[in-house]
Amino acid sequence: MRKFIVITLATAAFIAIAGPAAAADHVVSQKDGAFSVGTLQAKSGDEVTFKNEDKVFHNVFSLSKILPFDLGAYGPGQAKKVKLDQPGKIQVECAIHPSMTMVIDVSR
């Protein structure tokens, strides 16, 4: 019993010091009319930065139920960010260039 209490206290102390796993910031670029990845694996709480590395505007959006968003048009060198707050699959497109598609697969 005493051993169990020690382990529990040690675990609690570790969590208190380290905290929960840090959220990641994924970077997805748009270059040559394509996203840099077809499917992005991410965790709930992570963020995704969409970076325009083309010479034309892009407009990343999703009409998915779990995370609908519209980043609006942004030009060369600009970036916009989305926070992933729910698990699930998010279909992402460029409004201007519909051949640009990708999926964000968000796990807990």
């Binding site: 959006f61 009409l63 609006g72 409004a95």
Partner: peptide
Amino acid sequence: AQRPVASL
């Protein structure tokens, strides 16, 4: 009408 996104 196909993609209800403001810029479209």
